[in-house]
Design a protein around this nucleic acid. Sequence first.
RNA 1: CGGGGCGUGGCUCAGCCUGGUAGAGCGCUGCGUUCGGGACGCAGAGGUCGGAGGUUCAAAUCCUCUCGCCCCGACCA
Length: 579
Amino acid sequence: MRLTKMLFVTQREDPADAEVRSHALMARAGFIQKLAAGIYVYGPMMWRVLRRIENIVREEHDRQGCQEMLMPAMQPKELWVESGRWDRYVSEGILFHFKERKGSEVCLGPTHEEVITAFVRRQIQSHKQLPQILYQIQTKFRDEIRPRFGLMRGREFIMKDAYSFDVSAAAMAESYALMREIYRSIFTRCGLRFTPVEADSGAIGGSGSEEFMVDADTGEDAIAVCRATGYAANVEKAVSRIAAAPEPATDVAMHKEATPGARSCDALVEMFPDLPLQRMLKTVLYRAVFGDTEQSVAVMCRGDREINEVKLLNHLGAVALEMADEALVRKATGAEPGFAGPIGLDSEVRLLADHSVEGVQGFLCGGNETDTHYLDVYFGRDLEQPETADFGTVQAGDLMLDSDDAIEITRGIEVGHIFQLGTKYSEAMGANFNNEQQKLEPMWMGCYGIGVSRVAAAAVEQNHDDGGMIWPLPIAPYAVHLVQMKAGNEEQDALADEIHDSLEAAGVDVVWDDRPKVSPGAKFKDADLVGVPLRIVVGRDAGERKVEWSLRAGGGEREVLAVEEALKRAQELCAEAGR
RNA sequence: CGGGGCGUGGCUCAGCCUGGUAGAGCGCUGCGUUCGGGACGCAGAGGUCGGAGGUUCAAAUCCUCUCGCCCCGACCA
């Protein structure tokens, strides 16, 4: 493809609204253009990338016997009422929904469990038809509370979603294991460095769940990993062992301490320099929402630890969890925010504690009175230890539960998530099959998602430098960037034309910068920005049929090669990358 | 939802406080020179200053409303 025939526009400056590199670089290179918050046009280059990713996704699914289909983006409310998810998705505000002409309500699909289950319950009647894995690649719609980071968190995005249907929990686990392998193949083939992690299953529900994280410091998710054991889990889910708190030296009676203005552990540490942070217990207040009802919850944890709201939400079985606002704090504690504690709390408040409080004695905690804390408090003596469970967030340096190996915290971008759903949707929606004994049973389901457009963003987030994007060869918009220094020079014209045609004939896609009157510097800058992985420069040595060969990722290292050698290398690398 | 900020040629921004001819750089068009890391000269095109209303002789500028966009926070006591 000749650049002079393409719609190719680059910008020298980052767009004002780009927060992350992938967004800024894609926008500068014309790959994407924002249409509204979280809604983007994919330009021709971007679409080539997306199609490449889609094709890898397709090939790996098809290879394992999954079947592609396509479901509607518009879905009737009734289906979502059947599954019981309508209220939750509407109240969380992430569902785009509207009334159509006749007045019935419709939403734009954020995911397709309801539709696929409705489809399958009429198609499948017998155990003989199982197992099945169906998938589609399609635009999804989620009215994100705060769309950001370009393609990473958009309100409209391309997703591959797959659904498995099985006769039993064991069979479901087999489908799940197969999908896990498919996912590993896909991300490996995309040329990405990634980490599969144990995950919380969130709003979708169900039991087992893993996320596939593209390793990147700018990722939105924190991951707990243990190099020694191979453990890896999203911190929302991760569990660990923590060092015990130091024991108090003396046994003193509980008493009040005046702590004017000390609303945080930081302030208390300054006020009580001899008291270790591990012997300060904080009490955090939440408002838990259950469908129609609400409940105030107070959770204690050690001063050096943090509460994990996902674990808390799951333990409570709540629909949503919010930090208590000031009014609620006043009602629950009778004090200004900052002085909540377990003693003398409003009786309406459910008191819980994180495991980190276990064994902590002689501690400091909020006094439920403005500017007051209790000191030298003992569980068992001054109050009963509340219902205790794991509500803690794993921190770097924590130990594995069953070994002395340390855990570290890294970051990643979630590009894939697989779930064992069980019979949650099939039971709710009556997706049953006849088993061998003529008995009706609900199908066992799994669901599996890949954020196709997010994979592209993550690839750039993981692979770029100051000059621009560096696409992994398998998903790059073109394999070869042919840079002609001086268009109009006869030798160069002839040689570039020959290289271009040879590569295309060999099935290697090439973009040929044949722009006249564009300076070499500008051409190199544009090539760096666009990030096509293989580069062939036709310039001063064209007369001897020599070109300059380099890799975009190669840090400026260049070689002068005979044309044939450069062509051979390009073909070999493409074959290796499976393109 | 709460708080803050910003809307001015395609892009990045100045001008607004203190009302009076709409600006710069990049990009774009034409001609010429240049040609291995964002070249240069000359000549041009392109903006109802987000929208509506108001104040005023006069509004990008002041006031009100509205729409859009961005950031921060989702109070860890």
